[in-house]
């Protein structure tokens, strides 16, 4: 049935998908938290209330969230070429993946922080907490379940993005399914790639849910 599937190639493609997803997820995590924090702290009534910075951050986030991913990759070609030295292969997909998903995660982070009880932040202030203490000992721990479940959603969206990046030669399961499967009419290959992506998505969702439940003591 799967006579066109080459196990070595499939394994390489899966590894590339993992590589792109994990590295870009880490980048998304760091940049998303920073942007989300900036959005939250500079918002009205926030600790660093600042209309200008908030408006700028919000527009940057909105602009990059609005550009369809496939177009974003094309737009970022010069930047990618400058940064990575090539526009092909899994590493070349990373800038676009991170820039495409970090703003999305930033919004989820902002929402998670906003869900933290204002009273708890007030209590921390009343005992003389610094802003850094409030961030690391109140905001992040208190919103951790939402941060993790947001990251799960982002990771799954990222897998979709890696497949799209594959269409323009980033490698990974999308690339494999399109060039070796679809274009050569090896539909069994398209099918097996889909199954593998589905399995990865299920595993990520399962791990995300498990961790979220484990850390939620509410």
């Amino acid at each position: 049935m799967f006579e066109n599937v080459n196990m070595d190639e499939l394994l390489t493609a899966t590894n590339e998908t993992f590589y792109m997803t994990i590295i870009s997820l880490l980048g998304t995590l760091v940049i998303g938290i920073l942007l989300g924090l900036l959005l939250f702290l500079t918002a009205r009534g926030g600790i660093w209330e600042n209309k200008v910075i908030n408006a700028i951050t919000a527009s940057v986030v909105n602009v990059f969230r609005s550009i369809p991913f496939i177009i974003l990759i094309l737009l970022l070609f010069p930047f990618t070429n400058f940064l990575i030295g090539t526009i092909r292969g899994p590493s070349a997909a990373l800038p676009a993946l991170i820039i495409g998903s970090a703003p999305f995660y930033a919004r989820l982070v902002e929402i998670a922080f906003r869900e933290v009880d204002k009273g708890v932040i007030e209590a921390a202030k009343s005992i003389g907490a610094k802003t850094s203490t409030i961030i690391f000992k109140v905001l992040i721990p208190e919103s951790l379940p939402a941060l993790v479940s947001g990251l799960t959603v982002t990771a799954i969206a990222l897998i979709g993005y890696t497949a799209m990046a594959g269409i323009i030669g980033a490698g990974g399961l999308g690339d494999y399914a399109y060039f070796y499967g679809f274009q050569r009419r090896n539909f069994d290959l398209v099918f097996i790639c889909t199954i593998i992506i589905l399995i990865i998505v299920f595993i990520i969702q399962f791990i995300g849910d498990f961790i979220t439940n484990k850390i939620d003591k509410r």
Partner: peptide
């Protein structure tokens, strides 16, 4: 200066 709140404001985590 200690402060006690109506809704306790404890860290659930």
């Amino acid at each position: 200066i200690g402060m006690v709140f109506q809704h306790f404001n404890l860290l659930w985590s």
